[in-house]
Simulated assay, not measured.
Amino acid sequence: MTALAWRALRETPALADRLRDRFPLVIFDEAQDTHGDQLRLLEHVFKHNGAAFQRLGDSSQTLYEDDGAAPAYWTPAPDCIPLDTSRRFGGEIAGFASRLTARRTQTIVGLGSRPASRVMFLFDEATIGGVLGAFAEEARALWGGDCGRRDVWAVASRHNLPGKKGEWQPKSLVDYHPAVGISGLARAHSWKATNDRPITAHNIWPALSHRGLALLPAVRRLLRDHLIAGTAVWEEAAWEAFMEALLPLFGPPPKGSERDIADLCAFLAEQKADLIDPERRSTKQVQFDDLMVRLGSIHSVKAAA
């Protein structure tokens, strides 16, 4: 895209002037996520001839690494205007965050009035499914009987970590809530993936194929007929018919797991997103007794804030 843009500017010299006339004021947010070639293109178009080109960013949050002598990403100039205050959190978190500003030292000031606390959950691949429940317990301990009326979010930033191919690393909130769908049903039956690893949403289909050539297509066919093309999501009778066809494929439940499987396979009434309140648009959520934890990404929550 950058190369095509440069070619358009070379072949149509008046294009830059037309863009500056159309956009005399450009406020460029998240500038630290722009590499050198992109930034040179934008500066060529907007950084002269009377156009106002304002860049906002934090070099400590860049997606890029240093590339030789000059940074490969945008960095603020020495005479930049610092934006050090935030109303999203108080002084305790601000002090902790200030220690993380490695590329450009910054003292962050927190003006928020909400109480802050930091909790660390330790887990491995076999116990990652308990993290959200432990998080819910922390929320319940903080707010007590009032927790059911609060808007509680579990927020994660998706990462693709470098490393050995096949090495297990959590990437998103999907990894923290494995007891859903077909993968949850397989886990409830004490099934394992290859190398005796827990079954997750990422490895469920290979795990089913290893248990018999007919199982995988049979499960997928039921999902297609009853969920995608059928009405099992919306009608309880259709859901019960789906369960009657699906559960025999997994065989009898292990002793002591009958209640868990029944809860997992129970029909849920329809839940619609709230289109008026942006913070309630997501229907991805997990219920822990009276406390509902909404699931989202760091980007969606920042946008709502």
Rank of each mutant, 00 (worst) to 15 (best):
S209A: 15
R281H: 08
P248N: 11
R10N: 13
A303E: 12
L63D: 04
G251S: 11
G181F: 09
R7W: 11
A14W: 10
R187V: 08
D79M: 07
R259A: 15
A273Y: 04
Y73M: 05
R87K: 09
P115I: 03
S157A: 15
A3P: 03
L247S: 02
R114V: 10
W234V: 12
G90D: 01
H44F: 11
D274E: 07
T101G: 03
A241I: 02
K302Q: 14
W168F: 09
S86T: 14
P82V: 06
F121A: 06
A241E: 06
D21T: 13
N195V: 03
R149P: 00
A214H: 12
T107C: 06
E138T: 14
T12N: 15
R197G: 08
P170C: 01
L161I: 10
H299V: 11
R20W: 08
R118Y: 00
C147K: 07
L295M: 11
L249T: 04
F53K: 00
A94T: 06
G36H: 07
L264T: 10
E270F: 12
L39T: 01
I182D: 08
L246Y: 01
W143R: 02
Q285H: 05
S183G: 04
K164R: 14
F28G: 10
S98C: 02
L9F: 00
A229D: 13
L249D: 05
R104H: 08
G251M: 05
R220S: 13
Q32K: 00
M243R: 10
A5G: 02
H226T: 05
D124T: 00
P206H: 11
D66Q: 15
L264I: 06
R20I: 04
E65W: 09
R149C: 07
A305T: 13
L249V: 05
W168M: 04
D225Y: 01
G144P: 05
V119P: 00
G91R: 08
P254L: 03
E65A: 14
P170L: 00
G129R: 01
L249Y: 10
S257G: 08
L213T: 11
Q61Y: 02
I298A: 14
T85G: 09
K165V: 12
M292A: 12
A136S: 04
T231L: 06
R40P: 07
W74G: 08
V26Y: 07
H35S: 09
V155M: 06
W6V: 06
R55Q: 15
K192A: 13
F23H: 13
W234T: 13
L246C: 08
V219C: 02
S86W: 00
